[in-house]
Each structure stands twice: as C-alpha cells, then as structure tokens.
Nucleic acid binder design. Structure first.
Lengths: 112, 112
DNA sequence: ATAAGTTGATTACCTTATGTAACTTACTAT
DNA sequence: ATAGTAAGTTACATAAGGTAATCAACTTAT
C-alpha cells in the first residue's frame, strides 16, 4: 500500500509532524535552547522516546545538539533555522486549538 | 509521566494532528467530500486504520459521515466547519514542505 | 437458483512503536 | 568507599499499525 496522489514533499513534512511527540518537542524548543531533562519534564515524554526523537530531528536538520564536557556533562538542544521555520505551523495549531478545542476538565493556559 | 507545562488545548490539538495519518486524511478531505475507498487509495492507508481514524475524527467533530442506502451502499465523508478550519494549518505545513523538504529521489507535485 | 461482484467495515495474526523501570558512564562531592 | 548527577541505553511489557481474509446486504451474471 503506497500509491498516494499527494505531493511527496508534503507527505514527508506531515510524516515528520505526525510522529508522536515531535510537534511538542519542537514547540518546546521554540522557547529557546534547552537540556534533555528540561525538555523531558516539560513535554512529559519518556527518556527513551525523547532520545529517539532528538536523534531523528538532528538527522533531519531540525535540531542542533551541543555538548559541553563539564561535570556532569551538559548537552544543549536548540532549533536550527529549519527548525525555527516551523514556528508558523506550530503557532497556527496553537491558534486553532484556542478557537476549537474545548477546555473540558483541563485547566487553561496563560494565553487563554 | 504526565506533567507538562504546555497549554492543554494545544496539547490536545497536537495529539490530534500527530496521530499517524490524521493530517493526511484531513488534507485529502480539503479537496471535497469523498468516499471511503477514494480516501484510502489517495492517502495510501490501510482500511482498518482509515476506519479507526474516520470514527475518531467524527467523534471529535472534524469529519461528517453520511450514509446513502443505495446498492452497494454509498458513504460520504466530508469536513465539518471545525475540520475546514484546519486548512490554514495544513497549508502552512504544505508551504513549509516546499521550502524545506528536499525532493531527493521523490518526484514532485504540480505545485513545485 | 447459484455464483460472483460491490462497498464499507471487521477479525485474526504479526510486526513496529511506545512506556516503565533498572542500569551505564564518567566524574564530583561526602 | 559511597552516593549523586546528566544523559542516555537496555530489557521487558503493552499499544498501535499493517496485511489479508472475511462479513453484510444487496445486485447482476450464468
């Protein structure tokens, strides 16, 4: 099963964004450079999967990884230009969510 | 593991879009009402998962399902207002993909 | 009448993907 | 020595997804 009529570039982009956690991780990094454990606790993702995602995003040129050999070691993750260019997409989703997603029992966020 | 600092509405929206195939199905329906098998062959998704996704999207008020008891039965899927309101998001992704995704061995689409 | 075909789904069965928790490396502080 | 820290990794269990066969309900072909 592989014969869509949809633009392959779009498909690639969608398959990136539609991988679980990826959008959230990028969104989180929009607020600036962060370390592994910061991302992990902010996003609520398991270490294993975060590790996978970051490797993936690095390979795709969306995320940059920098190692500082202090003790204990510090590793910083940030968005590349390509990564930052996803901001409009994430903002559009954020926007949509504030119009169309009901709060239900959820709390709300600052922006609400 | 569940204690993010991210807006719950945004999280909900992202969890919708970051479910595999969902974005592609909605994108496909942007071009108008379609039947099960049309979506299936256009998107390249298995019948099982498409069935799941459509049920999901119907419950979330993104997709509308109409049954015409002809023979064989005809069932039409279309976007609701909520569904259509996702167009800017999908277009933004499309846009991004044309700027940042390389063609590699892929073909290209009309828009390229 | 019996067999074959249609659409939208579902079922059984197998392979990935994700979650949990324990463990690793390398070095510091007690 | 012992414990602690950051960033992962590993082993193991559960959930999600893919494939192919099958179903319901009705029509057309033989």
């Amino acid at each position: 099963m592989k014969q869509s009529t949809i633009c392959p570039k779009f498909e690639k982009a969608i398959s990136l964004l539609s991988q679980r956690w990826t959008g959230l991780v990028i969104y989180q990094l929009l607020s600036g450079t962060q370390r592994f454990s910061e991302i992990q606790s902010a996003v609520g993702i398991s270490g294993k999967v975060l590790s996978d995602r970051l490797k993936d995003l690095e390979v795709q040129g969306v995320v940059k990884r920098e190692v500082f050999p202090e003790t204990p070691v510090i590793i910083e993750y940030s968005l590349t230009e390509k990564g930052h260019s996803l901001e409009p997409v994430l903002k559009e989703i954020e926007n949509w969510s504030h119009v169309w997603v009901s709060s239900e029992d959820d709390g709300s966020c600052e922006i609400d």
